[in-house]
Each structure stands twice: as structure tokens, then as C-alpha cells.
């Protein structure tokens, strides 16, 4: 298994008129690695994938797939790449098997190889019993699964998935995750574009945060959270309103400005989660009774918010 970078983006830049779509995007995806490209809608994820898949050229920068430069060796680069576009890039009136066969053969597979691999993939994505049904009879989740299978038909060294779970049911999402993980375990370099933070956290070895065409940060989820400096916090609802300074005396706890709901809520940052019992005890003392509390562990959403100043799903 080649463990080097299978997907390499170097200082990719792209403009559409006055709008900057990409502004110096650089990252790599190694073999066997799942890298999440996380960002809000319009952040530049699809543009990045389009450039990396050779669909559109960058204004500047370089992109290579499995060491094949897309500018100088596009044929081999494309042959090493499997693209799973955000749209369902399927022929709705062809059967699942026909779709897989076509995409496999267009990537250079022999007919017999394509047939056997198609049946294998259909089984992996749970569509083996629907192989001969026309795609337009499939549910959205089934189409998504087939869409991914089509991108993997020729066993590419690099696979790019653009929002592959949009609109799918939990069952299909699980199948998709399994397929992606299996592909990575098989040595594939996976670039997984999503705006679902949970998916990135769940699936990706590394995450590239992108916003407004720029890489905000990249690393493991813990690294990103740490990089953002976010801390756990506790949100508490008490019977009586907690007055300012209610947490005084508990080391490492900082009261946060909190939107008061009926005057009975408060929030505080924690140095660590071991401080939670002390905080609850103090809230009972001051607020007479704790009706409800919620401990929030810091996540990518927080990190993104911290790094960009706006929430992942609220990009302007």
C-alpha cells in the first residue's frame, strides 16, 4: 500500500468574476486516510473538489492525484480518482448494475471485471437485490449509496466524496460510512466533503476546515478543538435565578454571559469536566433547586465558531 499523499492540493486559487472561490487552498490526503473537508455551504468545498477532480482548472496552484499532476498528466490523474459528486450522478433509467458497469467501463475496466466488481459493490452498499431495478425506482438513500459505489467502481487510489449523505436516512448513512471506511482500509485516500460536523468527527482521521475559500485550520478534531482553545461549559436552569458571582470560589470556573430565560438560567466555562459536581452543588445552594443542567463538551462547531466567528451552519 502506498502511504504517501494520494491527493495533493497546493495553493489552489479560483475566482468567479469578482468572487474569490478559493484563496490558496493547500492540503494532502494520504493513502488509507479519510480527510474531511468541512465548511459551510459556499465555503469552497465543491470548487476544491472540482479542481482536484479535473472538472475545472484552478486559476493557479497545483493539484495532483496519486502523484499525477492534473495539469500535466490529467489522464492518469483522473484514472486514479473516483469522484462522488454531491448531485446523484446516475442515469435514472438505467439499472443499478448498468450504471455501475458504465462507470466502471468508462474508467477502463474490462467488461467481466466491471461486472464482478459491480456485484461486489452492490452487496457492500446493500443494493445487491436491486441490481436490475432502474435507479429512478430507488429511494434517495439508495441512490446515494449507488452514487458512492459508482465512484469506487474502478478501485481508485483517491476518492472524493462531496456531501455524500445529504438527505439520506440513518440506515443509508451507516452504510455509506461503512463503505467509506472500508475503502480507506483498503488503502484509498478519501477526501470527504461535508458540512455535517458530526460526520467529520465520526469518520475523518483529519479535518480541513474551510471558509470563504480559505483553509481555516486542519488537523485531527482534537487538534482543531484545542487549536480553537475552546473549553467545556455547563448550562444550568435553577428554580431561582443565579446572581452574578454565584460561582465565586470554585477555581477554574468562569461565569459566561447567558441569555436569560425566565431569569433562571446560567452558564459557566470549566477547566475540566471534574468540576461539574462542584458547580452543580453551588447552583443548588444559590438557586434553591437545579431543574436542569447540560454539560457541553467542546466540538468542531465550537472550534469553527471560534476560528471564523460564525457558526458552521450559519455562514453568511
Amino acid at each position: 500500500m502506498n502511504s504517501g499523499p494520494m491527493i495533493r492540493a497546493e495553493d489552489l486559487r479560483k475566482r468567479y468574476g469578482d468572487r474569490v472561490a478559493l484563496d490558496g487552498v493547500s492540503f494532502v490526503v494520504n493513502a488509507g486516510e479519510i480527510v474531511g473537508l468541512l465548511g459551510p455551504n459556499g465555503a469552497g468545498k465543491t470548487t476544491t473538489l472540482s479542481i482536484l477532480s479535473g472538472v475545472i482548472p484552478p486559476d493557479s496552484g497545483r493539484a495532483s492525484i496519486a502523484t499525477h499532476d492534473l495539469a500535466t498528466d490529467p489522464r492518469e490523474a483522473r484514472r486514479s480518482l473516483g469522484l462522488v459528486p454531491q448531485s446523484l450522478a446516475l442515469y435514472p433509467t438505467l439499472t443499478a448494475l448498468e450504471n455501475l458497469m458504465f462507470w466502471g467501463r468508462i474508467q477502463g475496466m474490462a467488461s467481466s471485471d466491471a461486472l464482478s466488481h459491480a456485484r461486489t459493490l452492490l452487496a457492500e452498499v446493500g443494493l445487491d437485490d436491486r441490481a436490475d431495478d432502474e435507479v429512478n425506482e430507488f429511494s434517495g438513500g439508495m441512490m446515494r449509496r449507488l452514487n458512492i459505489a459508482c465512484g469506487m467502481m474502478h478501485s481508485p487510489a483517491a476518492i472524493m466524496l462531496d456531501e455524500p449523505t445529504v438527505g439520506v436516512d440513518p440506515q443509508s448513512r451507516g452504510r455509506i460510512f461503512a463503505v467509506v471506511e472500508a475503502a480507506a482500509q483498503a488503502g484509498g485516500a478519501i477526501l470527504y466533503s461535508t458540512h455535517y460536523m458530526e460526520e467529520a468527527e465520526r469518520l475523518c482521521d483529519r479535518i480541513v476546515l474551510i471558509d470563504h475559500g480559505k483553509i481555516v485550520a486542519q488537523g485531527t478534531d482534537r487538534e482543531l478543538i484545542a487549536l480553537a482553545g475552546t473549553e467545556p461549559r455547563i448550562e444550568i436552569m435553577t428554580k431561582k435565578a443565579l446572581p452574578p458571582g454565584w460561582s465565586n470560589g470554585i477555581a477554574g470556573v468562569g461565569e459566561m454571559p447567558w441569555e436569560v430565560v425566565n431569569g433562571f438560567a446560567a452558564a459557566a466555562t470549566l477547566n475540566n469536566l471534574e468540576q461539574v459536581p462542584d458547580v452543580i452543588r453551588r447552583a443548588v445552594e444559590v438557586g434553591d433547586e437545579v431543574i436542569e443542567f447540560h454539560v457541553h463538551r467542546p466540538n468542531l462547531q465550537d472550534a469553527f465558531l471560534k476560528l471564523t466567528g460564525h457558526a458552521l451552519r450559519d455562514a453568511p
Binding site: S50, S53, G54, V55, R75, R78, R79, L81, L83, P85, Q86, S87, L88, A89, L90, Y91, P92, W103, I106, Q107, G108, C150, G151
Partner: peptide
């Protein structure tokens, strides 16, 4: 174009 197959075709060797 609308289905996205054109983009996929172009990302492939077609």
C-alpha cells in the same frame, strides 16, 4: 448536466 453525470464523466477519462 443536471444529473451530475456530465461532471462525473469529465472527472473520469471521458
Amino acid at each position: 448536466h443536471d444529473w451530475g453525470t456530465l461532471e462525473r464523466l469529465r472527472s473520469a477519462s471521458a
